[in-house]
Design a protein around this nucleic acid. Structure first.
Lengths: 220, 220
DNA sequence: ACAGTATCTGACCGATCGGTCAGATACTGT
DNA sequence: ACAGTATCTGACCGATCGGTCAGATACTGT
């Protein structure tokens, strides 16, 4: 009995096994909340469900986070901070198109690291307007759009940008989280994403794609 | 007072103004439910909210639809039927790649017509497994994947397919529904989508744009 | 040993959830 | 005019929602 590591140890609120230092309750709760918010949505996730999964009481969740919305802030905040930093590094002043290739790489790495957070505010951002952390994310997306495209951008360009953003977010969550590793090895996923996002953000197909060949796709 | 057409007329359950024949209550409820399910999610949408928006009581909603899940079935069913027909027309037997350009056009038209439904089962399909209508949609997506790609498809191809599917669904909802007409005129959107989806589903960039003799390493 | 603090919990709150049901009302064909 | 049916509603149900609070327990520095 009590095969689950969550049962006996965490139920008391502190790690018992001295060897593997269990993450703090707040960290654990944030991780569970992140997954649930992305999977079933913020509105459809109950604090009770989060507490049950973590092995705590609902009161404990509300001890660590003042409210459900505060928990959302804590969950999304770091990812949005990081997005802000990625954007700031590539839009220093008025000069928008600095080093687009490097930007795409940094952006894809951001997506890979924070795919669940991105999925949340991509797919639920519109219905959560008013929540500070969501508004901040929406502002950053608007900033990103503005820095990538001039004011006279075409429908074509806007569509390609939207497809790149939403497509990457969807693929990462649906493919990596839900479908397991059916999508491919992580390094291949990263390479393919960088390529397809670059392609989508460029007015024409990548110019130097000609001789790249396979790169490292054969190395498993 | 009572400027809203919903107020006086529908509150009694039947259209009063004889000129403009109001849609049936069931149709109206489905339209409102569709929007809410897509906007805030199925789990976060209450029957009361749907009823209030339509100007009916919650009991009336449950008179027309036996349950919340039955309402979801009624909302998504037609779109999934249509998707099934689109797929059936282009995968008659084992021959998968019939006329890919025509298929992409039909598929994009399907996306344009049922963007909210697609958004629902793209973004909430994983958390609604077990619901018959959602399972049916997931099967169709799997069938689509199988008909587009051989069993030995590369990571690159799978990523591109996912980006096309998720990206188109996201762009149509976020761009057209939430951002109004900021994306562009409908015919331009359609044209741009057909082009970008075609490009993503092709193993190599569009042949006309560059003379890259590479063919992307996928053609093995 | 002891006081102070951090953490966790059950009991409880009003509000809302999906759903049931009896009855009121409107429409129908005769 | 009348019976039958379709439609709509309020009252009500148990369950669950996010959140509060007093008190139990564990840990801390002294």
């Amino acid at each position: 009995m009590s095969t689950s590591p969550l049962d006996a140890s965490v139920a008391q609120g502190r790690p018992i096994t001295p060897g593997s230092t269990r993450p703090s309750p707040a960290t654990e709760l944030k991780a569970i909340a992140l997954e649930q918010f992305a999977l079933v949505g913020f509105g459809a996730t109950s604090l009770q469900a989060i507490a049950d999964t973590a092995g705590y009481s609902k009161s404990s969740v509300l001890y660590h986070f003042a409210s459900k919305e505060a928990l959302l802030e804590a969950v999304l905040g770091p990812a949005i901070d990081r997005l802000g930093r990625v954007l700031a590094a590539f839009t220093p002043a008025g000069d928008a198109r600095m080093d687009r290739d490097a930007f795409v790489e940094a952006f894809v790495d951001f997506l890979l690291e924070h795919r669940l957070e991105v999925h949340i505010f991509i797919n639920q951002g519109q219905s959560m307007r008013g929540t500070p952390v969501i508004d901040r994310a929406n502002e950053l997306i608007a900033e990103l759009t503005a820095s990538l495209f001039a004011a006279d951008s075409t429908t074509q360009e806007r569509i390609r940008f939207g497809v790149a953003l939403g497509g990457a977010a969807y693929t990462l969550v649906a493919g990596m989280t839900f479908a397991g590793d059916a999508l491919g090895p992580p390094d291949e996923i990263r390479f393919a994403l960088i390529q397809v996002v670059s392609e989508l953000l460029s007015p024409a197909p990548l110019p130097r794609l000609a001789e790249t060949g396979d790169a490292d796709s054969a190395t498993g």
